[in-house]
Design a protein around this nucleic acid. Structure first.
Length: 899
RNA sequence: GGGCGCGUAGCUCAGUUGGUUAGAGCGCACGGUUCACAUCCGUGAGGUCGAUGGUUCGAGUCCAUUCGCGCCCACCA
């Protein structure tokens, strides 16, 4: 006998090892087959690589369990499956962690130098990189770990270089000075996507731009960043603005500095907004940059890399950007150039990582020319080479692709893929090469040095689905497994990652990297709040797994998530699913316990009971529904169906009926146990992708027990593990099954109405009571089912009568109606006739309401317009109600006669 | 400025192609300890599906308007 409590920790550790050692995580789970079966289309997922030095959070748990569910499902369907795991070097994030460590040691990145710093970072990776991988294994992820990759691996680094050089040679990568987003504290450029705009209270500063020819006359200007005045190279007004258009062509004086700059006319300027005139700072504002290009304006950089004012700022040189703002404004006040300040709510650009205010500035960086790539990527989704789930994200994708800007890919960091470009110190030509060159391509000089910058982390991530399979080499893996099948990831990285994978794959491999994009939502706390340390609502998945088991956590994530919608997670939910795992465990114990006590195999053919047929039919229905839901990627809904079946039908009803059938002994007991086993087996299969551990554990015990039991010959060839067993195939339900289901539902009705009355009358659950049933056409069926009926309703089977018809209503008994069945319970002492009459009358009133409703409905145009089947359903219902109402009326009349 | 999602029982959420007295878990009330499970069993109370209008024989489910919450994108100083 299995222990009462499921020791999930031991099972989890043992089973994972068992699976992996047997090679089940490999693309072919049949050891006799070659690894690549060229006749079968494989199902492939590449894991969204988590940051190498990260620790597991609930977001990881969601995607790992979802992907594991998909992979396990396909594997059981007999499809060769490959799930490629790996980690991402996460440039900025990792570098910052190591820098922090150095700071603690009293040193810094600059102090130790590039080489030593990289050594330190690799060391850090070695120490911390294993953590997340270990945690992913704990979740049960059936990844092929022999194919684990890291974005800075030799192979992937080669892919990065190949991609860079390819794009460069095609003219899709260029270098040049452009206005970029600069992060002063990180000291690097970041891409547009890494800038977040947050709405904040600031000030709008109004001041005067004096005319050079007559300082008495001025153009009023408003700005949110007065310090940028120092780098103004024009003032712009709308060419049709009567207030200002006569200034066009004249010169104005930059406040304090006194530089003369032109007044220009440009339609970009909005007449209504602010003062209707605009200061132009091409060096520090994206719009102004565009205007500057149109008008050939000078371009001044007033900030250095630490956001301190340069020599352009004259007297303010060396001051921090915010200090300069304050000082300049003060000086302008003194000089009488200030008009006013207003409170102002506006969007402030902040760094996604670190949160400091980003400065747009001119800098020489590397860029990917994105338009040609985006065009192809747009087409791939429009022409449905790639499907997006949920579909609404297509629109988001299109919108982004249609408005995309060139991608700044160089980062002034050390941890990452160094840009494969070398500059010649002699001829200043550059060499772009796949392998480290020893000399300049142009002049042959050996005086060359490599670009110090590294690539945006997302550059290597964008190659992930094919670089992990061996690209640029035509490896067998690449040929067989690429393109991949499913890209499952969070909607928050649709642009960062998914879009770029599509663009790069189409350009570099010529095909879309995956067929389906499944986007999940974010994991929030139970009230839909983001989890954060400061709010104290963070749930650590490892703790919860230790407490309640991995299966409970997995089931919670899977059932609670709908594609593209955020998931609110609470410990209560996990607890509920821990209870479900416990339920599975105990149902398994029950099946096993009976299996051990099973009688010898009978000579006779099976004689199935109603309950047997019913549970089979319900199982078929479940298989069909689950199949349908999986095909529609409604995994959570599928889990819910299985849960309801297993707990609400198999455990609550069939197991209880089975108890009685087993007591009957002999053939009946044998076939009941067989049904218990078979339905349990199918349930474990359906449940396995959701809760792999408890299902495998029980299934292994079951398999073992079956093998030494009389069922051995009747239960064919189970494989060596549930994980690689076959997925139940749906088949259509037959008519006789529908009848069986209806009959059993009648039994359930009777049982419920008796239980209901027992609760109402406070009859102890254990107390057996007598009953008299009037069953009409169902008489023989009920007689047949008396055993289970008595067990389920706690009737004294020696004191139950079942007759087809009754001439006279029994006196002094409680009357009940369940569909076409009349029930009389001779419970002397419990019957207060008055009370009974009241109860029956209330019931009748309710029923009459229903009858009226249905009569009205059937008299309405509904009867003509609705499909026949729907109408018939209602007619049938009405007939049933009327019958019941008739019975109730008779019972009530009878009571009245007595009193 | 554009786009999207959500609003269903006290709480957190499900709800097939619209089909006709709306489901679950948790919580709550009442009753249950031998024989799979108190991480359990049985029974019950509790929503008319944010609001309004429309399409339809029929709407939580489709359309329009509206209110509330959240998110994404965007160069109005």
């Amino acid at each position: 006998m299995l222990p009462k409590t499921y020791d999930f920790k031991a099972a989890e550790a043992r089973l994972y090892q068992f699976w992996e050692e047997n090679g089940y995580f490999k693309p072919s789970n049949d050891p006799n087959l070659p690894e690549h079966d060229p006749t079968k289309k494989p199902y492939v997922i590449s894991i969204p690589p988590p940051n190498v030095t990260g620790i597991l959070h609930l977001g990881h748990v969601l995607f790992v369990t979802l992907e594991d569910l998909m992979i396990r499902h396909q594997r059981m369907k007999g499809v060769p499956t490959l799930w490629v795991p790996g980690t991402d070097h996460a440039g900025i994030a990792t570098q910052l962690q190591v820098e922090m460590k150095l700071k603690d040691q009293g040193t810094s990145r600059e102090e130790v130098g590039r080489e030593k710093f990289l050594e330190e970072t690799w060391q850090w990776k070695k120490e911390h990189g294993g953590v997340i991988v270990e945690q992913i294994r704990r979740l049960g992820a059936s990844c092929d770990w022999s194919r684990e990759r890291f974005t800075l691996d030799e192979g992937l680094s080669r892919a990065v270089r190949e991609a860079f050089v390819h794009l460069y040679e095609k003219g899709l990568i260029y270098r040049g000075p452009r206005l970029i987003n600069w992060s002063p504290s990180l000291q690097t450029a970041v891409s547009d996507l890494e800038v977040e705009h947050s709405e904040e209270n600031g000030k709008l500063y109004y001041f005067k731009y004096q005319l050079a020819e007559n300082p008495e006359v001025f153009i009023p200007i408003a700005t949110t960043r007065p310090e940028t005045i120092l780098a103004d190279t024009a003032v712009a007004v709308h060419p049709d603005d009567d207030r200002y258009k006569h200034f066009i062509g004249k010169k104005v004086l930059v406040p304090i500095l006194g530089r003369e700059i032109p007044v220009i006319g440009d339609e970009y300027v909005s007449v209504e907004f602010g003062t209707g005139a605009l200061k132009i700072t091409p060096g520090h504002d994206p719009n102004d940059y565009e205007i500057g290009l149109r008008h050939n304006l000078d371009l001044l950089s007033m900030l250095d890399k630490k956001a301190r004012v340069t020599e352009v700022g004259g007297p303010y040189q060396g001051q921090d950007r915010f200090e300069a703002r304050k000082n300049l404004w003060q000086d302008m006040k003194t000089a009488g150039l200030v008009i006013k300040e207003e409170d102002y709510l506006h969007q402030v650009p902040r760094a996604q990582r670190g949160g400091e205010i980003i400065e747009p500035m001119i800098s020489t960086q590397w860029f990917v020319e994105i338009a040609p790539l985006a065009e192809k990527a747009l087409k791939a989704v429009k022409e449905e080479d790639i499907e997006i789930i949920p579909e609404r994200f297509k629109k988001v994708y299109y919108n982004w692709m249609e408005n995309i800007h060139d991608w700044c890919i160089s980062r002034q960091l050390w941890w990452g893929h160094r840009i494969p470009v070398w500059y010649c110190d002699d001829c200043s030509e550059l060499t772009v090469a796949r392998e480290d060159p020893s000399s300049c391509q142009a002049c042959g000089s050996n005086n060359i040095h490599q670009d110090p910058d590294v690539l945006d982390t997302w550059f290597s991530s964008a190659l992930w689905p094919f670089s992990t399979l061996g690209w640029p080499d035509e490896t067998p893996d690449l040929k067989y497994f690429f393109p991949t099948t499913m890209m499952e990831t969070g909607y928050d990285i649709l642009f960062f990652w998914v879009a770029r994978m599509i663009m790069f794959s189409l350009e570099l491999t010529g095909i879309a990297p995956f067929n389906i994009i499944y986007l999940h939502g974010l994991v929030l706390d139970e009230h839909g709040q983001k989890m954060s340390k400061s709010k104290g609502n963070v749930i650590n998945p490892i703790d919860v797994m230790n407490d309640m088991g991995t299966d409970a956590v997995r089931f919670t994530m899977l059932v609670g998530s709908t594609p593209g919608v955020n998931t609110n997670l609470s410990l209560q939910k996990v607890e509920a699913n821990r209870n479900f795992a416990n339920k599975i465990w105990n149902a398994g114990r029950f099946v096993l316990g009976n299996l051990e006590k099973a009688p010898a195999a009978p000579e006779n053919d099976p004689d199935w009971t109603l309950a047997d047929s019913w549970i089979w039919s319900r199982m078929q229905d479940l298989v069909r529904n689950v199949d349908r839901l999986f095909n529609n990627h409604q995994y959570g809904e599928a889990g819910r169906y299985i849960y309801d079946f297993f707990w609400g039908e198999y455990a609550d009803w069939y197991l209880e009926a089975a108890k009685q059938q087993i007591i009957e002994g002999g053939d009946r007991a044998f076939y009941t146990i067989e049904t218990l086993i078979k339905i349990f087996d199918l349930s474990m299969r359906l449940l396995h992708p959701f809760t792999p551990f408890v299902t495998e554990e029980l299934w292994q015990h079951l398999k073992e027990a079956v093998q030494i039991s009389p069922f051995k010959t009747r239960i064919p060839d189970w494989p060596e593990a549930l994980m690689i067993s076959s997925w139940p195939e749906p088949r259509p339900i037959e008519n006789w099954e529908k009848d069986k289901v209806k009959s059993f539902e009648l039994i359930q009705d009777i049982v419920r109405s008796i239980r209901n009355l027992r609760a109402e009358k406070n009859i102890k659950p254990g107390k057996l009571i007598p009953a008299n049933l009037v069953a009409g056409d169902f008489t023989s069926m009920l007689k047949e089912e008396l055993g289970s009926l008595a067990t389920l309703a706690q009737l004294d089977s020696d004191q139950v009568t079942i007759v087809a018809k009754l001439d006279e209503i029994p006196q002094g008994q409680i009357g009940l109606v369940a569909g076409p069945i009349e029930i009389y319970l001779p419970l002397s002492g419990l019957v207060d006739l008055k009370e009974e009459r009241k109860r029956l009358s209330t019931e009748l009133e309710e029923l009459k309401g229903q009858i009226k409703r249905l009569e009205d409905l059937l008299a309405s145009p509904f009867a003509q317009k609705a499909p026949e089947a729907v109408v018939n359903k209602e007619k049938e219902k009405l007939a049933n109600y009327q019958e019941t109402a008739g019975t109730l009326q008779v019972q009530i009349n009878n009571l009245e006669e007595i009193t």
